[in-house]
Write a protein that binds this DNA or RNA. Sequence first.
DNA 1: TTGTATGCGTTATCAT
DNA 2: ATGATAACGCATACAA
Lengths: 335, 335
Amino acid sequence: MNIYDISRRAGVSIATVSRVLNNSPHVSENTRKKVMAVIEGTGYVPNAFARGLGLNTMKTIGLLCPDASDPYLSQALTYLERAFRQQGYDCLLSCTDKALLARQQGVELLKSRHVDGIVLMGSSFIEDDPSENDYIRDAARSVPVILLNAAFPCDNVYGVQCDDQRAVNEATLSLLDSGCRRILYLYHSRNYSGRKKLTGYRDAHAQRGVEVDEKLLCFFDQDKGSVHQVRDTLLQLEKDGLCFDAVLTSEDILSVGALKYARAAGRRVPEDLSVIGYNNSSLCACTEPELTSVDNKLFAICEHIVTTMMGVLDGKEMPQKTVFTGELVKRETTK
Amino acid sequence: MNIYDISRRAGVSIATVSRVLNNSPHVSENTRKKVMAVIEGTGYVPNAFARGLGLNTMKTIGLLCPDASDPYLSQALTYLERAFRQQGYDCLLSCTDKALLARQQGVELLKSRHVDGIVLMGSSFIEDDPSENDYIRDAARSVPVILLNAAFPCDNVYGVQCDDQRAVNEATLSLLDSGCRRILYLYHSRNYSGRKKLTGYRDAHAQRGVEVDEKLLCFFDQDKGSVHQVRDTLLQLEKDGLCFDAVLTSEDILSVGALKYARAAGRRVPEDLSVIGYNNSSLCACTEPELTSVDNKLFAICEHIVTTMMGVLDGKEMPQKTVFTGELVKRETTK
DNA sequence: TTGTATGCGTTATCAT
DNA sequence: ATGATAACGCATACAA
């Protein structure tokens, strides 16, 4: 069943059928009804491929997601997909892992499928070595690229993010001001965003005249950063004589591990130990006590990504960099 | 840059270029090299829409997901996307909410985009009222439909699931055999799968000659089933004089609420209260104590969905219904 | 308002 | 082994 079949049955030309299909105003009410009747009667649906070929778009956005099972990213996925669909765009999902090659292939894949735009989800896409970002520059030559929680100065690349440095800075200040002096910092990532957070941590100490003990900075490999691993590592640190009266983490899941440590070590939270997570994810309500965390405005970021994408596709001038401000959501793991 | 440009530069016809592109054996090694050189030199990529129009497929699978931020479904999403991509298929994601209309529209959307197959993620797609499943029957007329954790007897519809009834039955038996006599059952869904679980619960009681107190069956609305709501409801039940020595839930998140209740009520787990969840999701390692839960073999189910889909698309005969057996994973919330 | 004809970039059939 | 040409199903510029 194609447009020729419809035109024949309705006794009109395919051009007229096409006009009806596309709500052209240049169709008499009579013909429109006649054609619509045939269309509805046959259940005809235009062939998307032919349409795509002619218009050179299938209204599709490519979503590159390092890990769709991560609470933060899966939440972003939900927000993005809904907002894009409301704008009439479908989402092609590609879960790359973190390896550079995989990400490059992911971008290639989306490019080859002729998506209208690409969203790179998470700061892990931007590498320190500039040459390793070439694939992004390359992709941006054919389609607009929008970064979720990252920035990258390049034509046709747009970044929408949370000011992680400031957010961590404020979280750290809040700990220092509540009397904590030795704040353990657990983090997952050493990339740009990761270093920004670390800077926020250091600055806060400088602002309050507290010296940073480098032993308090504790890196976890992405894969090895399981809840149990964090707990065991902290137990070991304690046994090794490291003192700390607070834990600040670059992701909520690491805080879950910290709470497990506290339980295992018999330390009361928040009386003996304060804990602050990052992302304000659904995990926060699951822990006991419930986790104080930094809300990094994911919903706002996602909405703005879609707005930006639509604007760019519309040929409008759009800001290349948008920054939201995080907010500390106090729950039960802080005083 | 299209196939004509390449053919011109390589001094061959477009047919030859197409043959090279598709690895046809009927090309001399010499021409192949010549054409490949031009292709690589120009960075030419075939137009996916034109290809789709000719082949009537773009190798795309439609994933209908009620909630991509749900831990269980987002994990499934990750498994499915990776497996499909390994088979050369991309995934179009559509997050419908649970409303019937939204699901119908979701299916329509995927159909109109000419996906090669559709995966309906989660048992919530199958309604009790047979007429409300017409949209599935309808979709199955044009593309194979595979249900994740559901079954539906209809041509071109395939179900891959876990035997929820048996799994809940065994979980219940394990509680009864450990001495529990009043097992509170918390559940989210009254659909087919939901009722199966309930049957497993009832049967176990019958098998052990324990009577079921209907007051122990506690339904939570999907939206209202937040962790806090569960906690507060259980506190109220206790205040109302309801006794229970175990909690079994149809989803892990409900168990998280039960653990919160235990904490608030000062009941020790598992000594005073046993708790068993369902899904064996990443939440299990996050709670304190860690949650005993039913592993419903999500990975195996997803792998099998992809295998089935590939087989069907290959024209092979495939089983319409596949059932995996769940497994109780004991952690710290049971004796 | 409606119809005709052409282009979109492939793949595939049929010659050569 | 290679080339010419016809689908594939739509949108649209142009003609009527």
